[in-house]
Simulated assay, not measured.
Amino acid sequence: MSHHLSGPHLRSPKGDARLDLTDLFVFPAADDGRTVLIMNVNPFAPTQGEAFHPDAVYRINIDTDGDHRADVAYSFVFSEPAGGRQTATVRRAVGAQARAHEAAGDALFTDVPVAFGHEPHLAESDGRRFSAGLRSDPFFADLDGIGDDFRWTGTDFGVDKNVFGIVLEVPDHDLGDGTFGVWARVSVREGGELVSVDRGAHPSLTAYFNAEEVKDAYNAGEPADDRAAYLEPWKAVLAHTGGYAPAAAEEVLRTVLPDVLRFDRTRPVGYPNGRTLTDDVTDARLAMVSGGKVTDDHIGPHTDLLPAFPYLGHPHPVG
């Protein structure tokens, strides 16, 4: 799967679906000169969590200079839900504040209603757009077939699933010039301390590459440390699953280690140069881990996507 159920033993981090990062997307907006950042959380929403976690910081990090550390960060925090209502505040931090996990920096949006119904709530301020709430999950894959030794079922895991979407559209100049890197993080306050419980950028990494006993440490880690910590064990995974020689495995892993998704706006968008809502990342990861032996799960992208902001489709009925 993509980044769903990214805690140990295919469970949500801390056993809490509200803290479960499912996917990250970055692509050009329908309007020229703008970029879309989407962070989805809470698989199977809203049945495993009816609102965003009020003690969590949801964050999208931007690396503008290639050192795999945040130079710009957008943080999203949510009020305590009451009576089926919740609000969101969005902040933009730069420099040292961007490298911390706290919600810091300038407030871009304050007390924006979260949409839990069919229609999204759209907010706009200073050339930026924001929306958060229940949306259809754009992730598509034959997970049953993958789990059954690639005996394909023709069933799309995500076709009827919902997530909580966080969608931010910003002017390109917010993200620096040229190429930038992006990754998402979910942290939650425990005993007065903010603890990182999930993070990622590239799809379907932790499920394939991380042993159960290291998943919590991975989710707490920083991309700048990824190659030192995970290059050798991930090379061993590729040797086992795809028959890679060490040098070939190391070369393949350059794309995903560190776990920062790069986007060069001068080149056509398409994973791994950014990620659109229709990119077939499942096929890309299957081909990678199998050494090219498995290249297609025969499941295509969803057809309920919107052509303009907030791009994510309307939520499926819950019942």
Rank of each mutant, 00 (worst) to 15 (best):
D296R: 14
F116S: 09
L143F: 14
D198Q: 02
A56T: 03
D304F: 03
A51C: 04
D226P: 06
N219I: 02
A287W: 02
T241N: 11
P8M: 12
R85H: 14
L134F: 11
E193W: 01
L143C: 08
Y244M: 13
V237E: 11
F180Q: 00
Y58H: 03
V197Q: 04
T266D: 15
H240L: 09
L312E: 10
G145Q: 08
G192Y: 13
T241F: 06
G313F: 03
F139H: 03
A247E: 13
G49C: 01
W234G: 01
V281F: 09
A211D: 14
W152E: 08
T89F: 14
G15Y: 05
L194P: 02
K14S: 00
D225Y: 05
D126K: 10
D280V: 15
G7K: 03
H298W: 11
R11G: 13
R85P: 14
D106G: 05
Y271P: 06
A249Y: 11
L37D: 06
G33V: 05
G181D: 05
L108I: 02
T22K: 12
A103Y: 04
T241V: 09
K235F: 02
D225F: 07
A245Q: 13
L21P: 03
L277M: 10
V163Y: 12
R262Y: 11
G7C: 05
G242N: 09
V237N: 04
W152R: 02
K161V: 12
S196G: 07
H173L: 00
I146S: 01
D225I: 00
D297I: 08
F164L: 08
S125Y: 00
A56F: 01
D226H: 07
I62F: 00
L175H: 04
N42D: 02
N273P: 03
L108V: 02
A287I: 05
V72K: 00
H68D: 02
T255V: 15
D296P: 15
G158I: 07
I146R: 05
H298N: 14
F109T: 04
H316N: 15
A17E: 05
R185S: 13
V269F: 07
G154Y: 03
T278F: 06
P46G: 04
L168K: 07
E250M: 10
T155D: 11
E250L: 11
F25N: 03
E212K: 04
T87R: 09
N273I: 15
A184C: 09
A284Q: 05
L231N: 03
R34F: 00
I299K: 04
N219H: 01
P171M: 04
R129E: 05
G95R: 06
S75T: 09
M39K: 11
E169S: 04
R99W: 07
T255M: 06
D55Y: 03
D111G: 08
E232N: 13
L24Q: 01
V186E: 10
V281G: 13
L5V: 00
G176E: 07
V186T: 15
V281I: 15
N42L: 00
